[in-house]
Amino acid sequence: MECAAKGLAAEPCAGGVADRRCGSCGAVAYCSRAHQIIHWRVHKEECERFAEQMRRVNLLSQFPFTFLEPPALNHEFPSARCFFLQMFKLHQKGLWKSECICGSDVASAKDLSIAAEWNLQSSLCPCTEPENPVPAVLASWEDYYQWRSLPLHSPVAVLLHWPLTLYHCLQLYRLQTSKYDGQDTLCIHYLGPEKELLQLATFGELRALFPGVQIHIELVGPEVPKSRDGEVVNISRYARCSDESCCCKSSIGSEDSSCTAVRLKLWKGFYHERCSDIMKDSNPHLIVAPNAGVAAYPSWMPTIEIIRQTGIPAIFTDFCEEAAYLASCCISSITGQPLKIPIQVNPFRQPVAADNSALYLPCYSNCFIFGM
């Protein structure tokens, strides 16, 4: 944990870990009392808000899974996330490669669509069509696992938070309008993809969540490799399990683009730069921006203005409640309106905590959700 006063004080931070936490909120830490005093002029504006957010630590850490016992760190692995993956023999394998600090980044990927392996037994992953029709509403990970006949010790939620968050965004949008009810095609503009670019096969689960619906997703962001700009990835099957005898293997090599249920197109650049070109291809029902970090990146301001002008509903997520709060302030300063979808907990947030070197606030990928 870094000292919250780092960069503000004339004196450099003392060596070692910043383990002196604010006694009121417990969300920030300091290397010394002197630095805590210096930082108070900044922290006093946020302390009460942080304290309220810290009260939700237990709520946010509640998941139905049985795989969440924190592992003891092992010197062979550079992070707890790495060790967690190794517990399932998934470290640096298939779709899991980008889930830890050892993973390759998007820029070095030779083929964004190549990883389509769960590296799990068929009983632990959704590699085939569901046995039962999708319920009218899936409201939790427990609902999803029960529907997909998965045991609660399966770790697939660690990756499936991408398509399940998208599903939840569409359900929230559905409450606002019936615009897409009964339609056989759904178009989504997906802003700022990063590590999910190396996990595209997980979006195949949208086939099960929206049966009979063609889903077109335009993935737009600066992390899309230049060599992949304009690439189309068609997903007509689920990511495969490791069982050689499973029926999911029978579809290998038999993809037919005419029956593709999920079509992904990659666009390099910021949305406000590429919007006019993208709109020629597709008119979206919804814009989604996972883990957006709106307040942290000035490039979001012209994008939000474009969204405001088009009037297309947009839903954002972020890692922690403070990031969502700051984003809401930025959005409202541009739109002049309160959020249409207030900040709320995403039931399909990633069930493994994300590293947060600056604050003790609870932090999970796609943790909080809100919309304009």
Rank of each mutant, 00 (worst) to 15 (best):
C169P: 06
I252P: 01
A14W: 07
H91P: 03
A4W: 08
C100M: 07
I306Q: 13
Q92A: 08
L112K: 04
K93S: 07
I341A: 05
C329M: 12
S98D: 06
C329N: 12
A201F: 00
G230P: 03
K6D: 12
C187Q: 12
E205I: 05
Q92V: 03
S299M: 14
V137R: 15
Y144D: 03
P338V: 04
T185R: 14
L191V: 14
E305L: 13
L85P: 00
C125A: 01
Y145H: 01
N58C: 12
G371R: 06
Q183T: 14
H35T: 06
C187A: 13
C100W: 02
G293Y: 12
L150S: 00
A107D: 12
R228W: 08
P342T: 09
A34C: 07
A323G: 10
R33H: 13
P12V: 07
G311D: 06
M1P: 11
Y325I: 11
C47A: 04
A80C: 08
P130N: 04
S149Y: 03
W118S: 00
S154R: 00
S104F: 09
T303D: 07
H272Y: 14
S149R: 13
P71H: 10
V294E: 03
A327P: 04
D105G: 10
A109S: 14
H285R: 07
G192D: 05
P211M: 09
A289M: 08
L175E: 14
N356D: 12
S149A: 12
S104R: 10
E142W: 04
A115V: 01
Y360V: 11
P193Y: 06
L172D: 05
E46G: 01
A5E: 05
D105W: 05
F319I: 12
S32A: 15
L152Q: 03
S123I: 00
D181F: 11
R308P: 00
Y190K: 07
C102H: 09
I252H: 02
E69G: 11
L73F: 08
A18M: 10
P290D: 09
L120Y: 01
R41G: 05
P298R: 13
L186F: 11
